[in-house]
């Protein structure tokens, strides 16, 4: 299956990565190459096979539903490119 330029543009949009229009043909070509490589998987008989989920069947760990951490607002915000008044700040989202 090959990826055309429109699909490449759509995938870049879904991935939230800006790709200049001029770079789309090369991207489409690269992605197509990788997908062609993956097509080998179509040769495998997977009838009745369950997808793998873990190495050793393990019970998912459980713990009491109680607060074990928190009150670290300063630390949480320490690396933010823009933090104001105890919040992360982003460009205006609603008009």
């Amino acid at each position: 299956m090959s990826i055309d330029i429109d699909t490449a543009r759509r995938v870049a949009k879904l991935a939230r990565i800006a790709v200049p229009e001029d770079d789309l043909p090369k991207l489409a070509e690269e992605l197509s190459g990788i997908l062609t490589f993956m097509e080998q998987l179509n040769e495998v008989d997977i009838e009745g096979i369950e997808p793998m989920v873990s190495v050793t069947p393990m019970q998912l760990k459980r713990r009491a539903d109680e607060v074990t951490d928190g009150r670290q607002q300063d630390k949480v915000l320490a690396n933010a490119p823009d933090a104001r008044e105890g919040f992360f700040a982003v460009p205006k989202v609603v008009e």
Partner: peptide
């Protein structure tokens, strides 16, 4: 970028 986009595609 390439891998993120491939991943995005196969999960879409």
């Amino acid at each position: 970028k390439r891998r993120v986009m491939i991943g995005t595609y196969v999960l879409s």
